[in-house]
C-alpha cells in the first residue's frame, strides 16, 4: 500500500488531460466508433475503448476498478432501447447504471464521471460529440481524486 502512494503523485495540473474509460458494446457503439474513424471525425484523445459484446455484460466491478486505478471518468455505450443485439441486455445495463449512480452519490463521486449513452451503429457523429462534451465536462471537473485517496491510507 505505502509503496503505491509514492507512484501516485498527481500529475501537475498543466500536463493533466482526462483519461476516460469507454466500455462499448460490439454491435452499436463500437461500430459507431469505427464509423467515426472511417468518417475521419475528430475528437480528443481522452478515451480508451474496451469492447464487450453487449452493454448487459457491464459489471459494476469494472467501473469501480477503473475509478480506483485512475480513470477520470467512464463512458458506457450501448444500443438504443429496443435495439440491443441481444434484445434486452441494455435494459439490464441501464438498471445497473442507475444503481451505481446512486452509490456514487453516497461516495461523493460526481455523477458526470459516469455516463451512459445509447449510440447506434450509424451515429458516429454522436459518438464524437459525446466524447467531446465529456472531455470538456471532465476537464472542468478536474482530475479524479479516487485513485489517490484509495491508495493513500491517511493516518
Amino acid at each position: 500500500m505505502q509503496e503505491e502512494v509514492k507512484n501516485n503523485n498527481i500529475q501537475t495540473a498543466k500536463a493533466w488531460k482526462p483519461k476516460i474509460l469507454a466500455i462499448f458494446c460490439n454491435w452499436c457503439t463500437y461500430t459507431a466508433s469505427d464509423l467515426a474513424g472511417v468518417s475521419r471525425l475528430k475528437y480528443p484523445a481522452t478515451t480508451r475503448v474496451v469492447r464487450i459484446m453487449c452493454s448487459g455484460r457491464l459489471d459494476p466491478q469494472f467501473i469501480l476498478t477503473a475509478f480506483s486505478e485512475g480513470a477520470d471518468a467512464i463512458l458506457i455505450g450501448g444500443c438504443h432501447p429496443g435495439d440491443c443485439h441481444y434484445a434486452t441486455g441494455n435494459y439490464k445495463c441501464l438498471r445497473r447504471f442507475h444503481l451505481i449512480q446512486k452509490y456514487m452519490k453516497q461516495m461523493n463521486i460526481e455523477p458526470e464521471r459516469l455516463r451512459l449513452e445509447w449510440i447506434s451503429a450509424s451515429e458516429g457523429k454522436r459518438l464524437a460529440e459525446v466524447i467531446g462534451e465529456m472531455t470538456e465536462t471532465i476537464t472542468k471537473l478536474g482530475q479524479s481524486k479516487i485513485k489517490q485517496q484509495v491508495a493513500n491510507i491517511e493516518k
Partner: peptide, 29 residues
C-alpha cells in the same frame, strides 16, 4: 454470448469465453 448473466451472477460463477472477468479487469488495469 451477450454476457448479461455473467455480470449478474453474484458469485462470479458464470464465465464468458473471450470476455472473462480476469481478461477485462487486466485490460482495464
Amino acid at each position: 454470448g451477450c454476457g448479461t448473466c455473467v455480470a449478474a451472477c453474484p458469485s462470479s460463477a458464470i464465465k464468458q469465453n473471450l470476455f472473462e472477468d480476469v481478461e477485462i479487469f487486466s485490460e482495464i488495469k
